[in-house]
Simulated assay, not measured.
Amino acid sequence: MSATRTTANKGRGIDLQRLAQDFRGLDPNDPGLWPAAPQVAVYLAVLVLTVAAFWWFDWQDQALTLEARRAEETQLRDSWVAKKRQAVNLEEYRRQLEEIDRQFGALLKQLPNRAEMDSLLSDINQAGLGRGLQFELFKPGADVVKEFYAEMPIEVRLSGGYHDLGEFVSDVASMPRVVTLNDVGLTADKDGILKMDAKATTYRYLDEEELARQRQAAQAAKKGNK
């Protein structure tokens, strides 16, 4: 057994020596006469360099383009699916839009127009007087114009009993027109009479003339930004 192993090891050593010998003394001017091992090594090196050159100068760009096209395809497919869903649910979207328009119209009706503001201010004043409160201040401010409506702040100061003031606040909240009370403060004098300072805010929608001015101002602002 030991003799056999020794012979095998010598055989392997001789093969490695021969392989190393094949790579010595090669004539670069006549590679056709090279042994098989150097020729195969050169062919493999040329193949690897050729593949690397194609990858660097051509295939890499093609791979990036392919990846971009795949991403674009995925995006277009998602967009198509979303549009298909919208098309399938088009009637439901229309119904929801009509419901939103109806609700918006109902809310808009709670806003008075410019001609009705005097009546609304009188209603607020009568709400306080009807509860036996004394107005020490009732001062409407300038309109704050928004996109399609305007706010009118009103500074008020009333004096009276606790329950009467609470009923006044409840009356204002239950008005058919939208009126809010903010910055409410209560103080009591030496006789126990309460004084309430607050800023009431009511709202009105803009008429066609005011909306036209709003649109003109918006267009002028866009031109100014350009």
Rank of each mutant, 00 (worst) to 15 (best):
D191V: 05
Q96T: 10
K83C: 01
M1W: 02
A63Y: 07
D197E: 03
S159G: 11
W55P: 01
G128R: 11
L158V: 14
I14G: 04
R69P: 09
A188L: 15
T4E: 15
L111G: 06
F54D: 12
T7V: 05
L211F: 09
N125T: 14
A127N: 02
A142Q: 14
A20I: 03
W80A: 15
V51Y: 05
R5A: 12
G166R: 09
R213L: 12
A37Y: 06
A127L: 02
V169D: 03
K195C: 12
L97F: 11
P28R: 06
V40M: 07
S170T: 09
R85A: 14
M152I: 14
A173L: 06
Y203I: 14
E136P: 00
Y162D: 07
D123K: 01
S2D: 12
Q39M: 09
L33G: 07
R131L: 04
G160S: 10
V88G: 00
E99N: 10
G185N: 15
Y43P: 00
A220H: 06
L133R: 03
E136F: 07
V156E: 09
S159R: 10
P176D: 04
D171W: 07
L107S: 08
R85K: 04
L186F: 15
E147K: 06
G161Y: 02
L108I: 05
L165T: 02
R102N: 10
M117Q: 08
Q219E: 13
L121M: 11
R215F: 09
Q103G: 04
T6Y: 08
R213H: 08
A63D: 13
Q62W: 00
I154D: 05
L137Q: 05
L129I: 14
Y93C: 03
R177W: 00
G192I: 04
N9T: 14
L181T: 07
P38R: 04
G105M: 09
D207F: 11
Q75C: 11
Y205M: 05
D191F: 00
T74N: 13
D183I: 00
N29A: 03
K84P: 04
P38C: 01
E72I: 08
N29M: 07
N9C: 03
A142R: 14
D22Q: 00
D118F: 13
G161K: 03
L44Y: 01
V156D: 01
P112Y: 02
T6V: 13
E210S: 12
T180H: 08
W55H: 13
A41N: 01
S79K: 12
A52C: 05
A212E: 15
F168Y: 13
M117Y: 05
V169E: 11
L181M: 14
I124A: 06
E92A: 10
R157F: 01
I100D: 08
G132Y: 06
R70E: 12
F148I: 15
Y203V: 15
W59L: 14
G11F: 07
A221H: 10
A68R: 11
D164A: 13
Q134W: 04
R69T: 08
